[in-house]
């Protein structure tokens, strides 16, 4: 599945809102600068869940990736882009 950055970000946002529908209230605008910890309040365990969701949604493997190094949604978008290329 090929997707551009905008589509990847939209899909990521869907994943986040599915997991936590209140995220939109806390962070009305989710863009590539949105910080995963400070703005979305993701815990380290939540990052694990997100990694699994990303793998399923984008049909990629993140085994060789340390998802805890992702600090912004932009970091996640770039990672997914790289994996899908």
């Amino acid at each position: 599945m090929k997707a551009d950055r905008k589509q990847i970000l939209e899909k990521l946002t869907e994943i986040i809102l599915f997991a936590d529908e209140t995220a939109r209230e806390r962070c009305p605008v989710m863009d590539e600068n949105t910080r995963i910890l400070e703005d979305l309040g993701f815990t380290s365990v939540a990052m694990l869940y997100m990694a699994v969701s990303i793998e399923e949604a984008f049909n990629v493997r993140l085994d060789d990736v340390n998802v805890w190094d992702l600090h912004t949604l932009g970091d996640a978008v770039r990672l997914i882009e790289r994996k899908m290329a």
Partner: peptide
């Protein structure tokens, strides 16, 4: 102060 997530 810069933390936007209210829980955090």
């Amino acid at each position: 102060l810069e933390t936007r997530d209210p829980v955090l």
